[in-house]
């Protein structure tokens, strides 16, 4: 378990990253927190010719809470995001999800952008991005572009980031309704493992308890994390009573096509998808009602 030979460059700025990526193209891999990349390199499952270390780039590490969104730099540590109270107040789903990501130790090293770019279909942050419709700002030597989460994730461990592009920052939409609640839940065999199935939900209700907006999604049941905007849309106008929630969860679970592995069969995953989606929606509803 020693990595195959590689060259290493520590970039001091985003422009230097872009220059290195332009030079080495496909052969270069960005090193952020390294919590997934380094073990994969040690097992020689990933063999980059160049490793471009972005850990020292200050401009990639920030948290900015704005009126209708929060922005995080791609290399911001998960632990820093988890501990940011202003961010948690505006985009609570992030903190709720991060509690399930690895362990305190790995969150102190792992980054937000690293987790998104790694695109594990079971991972928590990609699911949050998908549910909230996060936007990824990608930078290259020739310019910048923004990808919505649903266009960002291409499949298991795959994104639509082009060679030469670096994830610079992530925009997390914040909902403005006063009664907005969110929840994240998942099942893994052991705490801190990648989820067998994960569910995230966010709902907003008006003063009468009627749903004015709902979003939810599932991880671990497809090649990418899945959001269900159409099904969620049917919840708008309801009081989010258990029957409506269960119907939505069941409908979403039915749409999934999960795979089987050692720890969970497709049938078990689909069952869990329904259970967890309902739990997340109910918990989000209770939070919204409590505000």
């Amino acid at each position: 378990m020693k990595a195959a030979p590689f060259e290493y460059a520590r970039a001091a700025s985003l422009s230097e990253v872009c220059a290195l990526l332009a030079t080495h193209g496909d052969g270069a891999k960005l090193l952020a927190g390294g919590q997934s990349l380094v073990p994969m390199m040690a097992m020689r499952l990933v063999r980059p010719a160049w490793l471009v270390d972005i850990n020292e780039i200050a401009e990639l590490k920030f948290i900015a809470v704005e009126k209708d969104m929060a922005r995080t730099g791609a290399c911001t540590r998960q632990g820093a995001v988890e501990r940011d109270h202003a961010l948690a107040a505006r985009v609570p789903l992030l903190r709720q999800a991060l509690a399930w990501v690895g362990h305190v130790q790995t969150r102190n090293r792992g980054t937000i952008g690293g987790s998104l770019a790694h695109a594990d279909p079971c991972a928590e942050l990609p699911l949050v991005a998908q549910v909230l419709g996060a936007r990824m700002l990608l930078r290259s030597g020739t310019g910048a572009r923004t990808l919505e989460a649903e266009k960002f994730f291409a499949g298991p461990m795959a994104t639509n980031v082009r060679p030469g592009e670096c994830l610079e920052e992530i925009h997390w939409p914040a909902w403005s309704w006063r009664h907005t609640g969110s929840a994240f839940t998942e099942i893994s065999v052991r705490h801190g493992d990648f989820a067998m199935v994960a569910a995230a939900a966010q709902v907003a209700i008006d003063g009468d308890g009627r749903c004015v907006r709902a979003a939810f999604g599932l991880g671990g049941v497809g090649g990418t994390p899945l959001a269900f905007p159409k099904i969620a849309g049917r919840l708008v106008g309801t009081r989010l009573d258990d029957a409506a929630v269960n119907d939505a969860a069941h409908a979403a679970a039915t749409e999934t096509q999960p795979g089987s592995d050692l720890h969970a069969s497709a049938e078990y995953r689909r069952h869990l998808a329904g259970v967890l989606a309902a739990r997340a929606l109910r918990e989000a509803r209770e939070r919204a009602r409590s505000l």
């Binding site: 258990d242 269960n246 969860a249 069941h250 679970a253 069969s265 049938e267 078990y268 689909r270 069952h271 329904g274 259970v275 989606a277 309902a278």
Partner: peptide
Amino acid sequence: WNAIGARKGAAST
């Protein structure tokens, strides 16, 4: 799940 799941049906609550 295999031992009891089938007995309980696919109740999603």
